[in-house]
């Protein structure tokens, strides 16, 4: 059996604030296989965002401190790696799609400028040689990969000229610039309307299938998990409470927490009218 692309082992993180120490991750284990499509699901305060930030190296220390465990990417521990080596991976081999398309884009530069600049620095870190014309060609290429019908026109636009769904596509394109092996998506589509969200989720699924990348999706929405992921990790209070394939966990959730969480989600077919009498249990 081959080793997973990303493997988190016994990750512990604590925060220190006003002299109080709080452990927020108590030994998290999580694997993302190459070409895998994995979801980490939890409610607010469960530790899913801290896990994501630890993987990407975005935790601010202090107040945060990683007190134990390993984050292995292609078998190398990101936590003991030299900073320069880690920078070579971040935004290139592993990249991230942020939740809020508006605050993640600079309003005063065109999409083309922003994507080309990111690519320029990624090229520099990796020692790749590419002319500006080649970089722009790559920018248009990734915009086409996220199903933009007119990549040149989108590239010339400022963020405000695009709809929410288009901006989210731009962020996905941005993450694809350096052909990552692992894409981490933070609440994809949450800030969008449900019809647009459906399009974005389909796009992410298609990308996993077509481009052979692995996806780790962080979300609070169980419906989104079921529609997109192959494997699910359920997180609560800094611990993974249950992990299984998507089919298995939705058919037979083993843990009480998972069952309660699933029972709380309203069903599109109805049958669970709200109200404590004559309705839900």
């Amino acid at each position: 059996m081959t080793a997973p692309l990303l493997s988190i082992r016994g990750l512990k993180v604590r925060f220190t604030a006003y002299g109080q120490v709080n452990e927020v991750l108590h030994g998290v284990d999580l694997d993302v296989p190459a070409r895998g499509n994995v979801a980490l699901v939890g409610e607010s305060g469960s530790g899913k965002s801290v896990t994501m930030k630890a993987i990407m190296g975005l935790l601010r220390t202090p107040p945060a401190e990683i007190t134990g465990g390993q984050i292995l990417f292609r078998g190398q521990d990101l936590l003991t790696m030299r900073e320069r080596e880690r920078l070579k991976l971040r935004g290139t081999a592993m990249s991230m799609v942020f939740q809020d398309p508006m605050s993640s884009l600079n309003p005063v530069f065109t999409i083309r400028d922003q994507l080309a600049t990111i690519l320029k620095y990624a090229d520099r870190r990796l020692g790749r040689d590419r002319s500006r014309a080649q970089r722009l060609a790559r920018v248009h290429e990734v915009l086409a990969q996220v199903r933009m019908r007119e990549p040149e026109q989108v590239a010339a636009a400022f963020p405000i000229m695009l709809s929410g769904g288009m901006r989210q596509r731009v962020l996905i394109a941005m993450a694809l610039l350096s052909e990552p092996e692992l894409l981490i998506a933070d609440e994809p589509g949450t800030a969008l309307d449900v019809t647009t969200q459906a399009q974005i989720l389909k796009l992410l699924k298609d990308l996993v299938a077509e481009r052979g990348l692995a996806l780790l999706m962080i979300t609070h929405n169980l419906g989104v998990v079921r529609e997109t992921a192959d494997r699910v990790y359920v997180m609560n209070k800094g611990t993974i409470v249950e992990s299984a394939t998507t089919g298995a966990i939705f058919a037979h959730p083993r843990e009480e927490y998972t069952r309660d969480l699933m029972a709380a989600v309203p069903r599109l077919t109805g049958g669970h009218r709200y109200g404590t009498q004559g309705g839900r249990a």
Binding site: V194, T195, Q197, A198, L201, N221, L222, G223, V224, R226, E227, F250, M262, V265, R267, L268
Partner: peptide, 8 residues
């Protein structure tokens, strides 16, 4: 309605 991510 078709766009709603569902549980089952």
């Amino acid at each position: 309605i078709a766009s709603v991510p569902v549980m089952s």
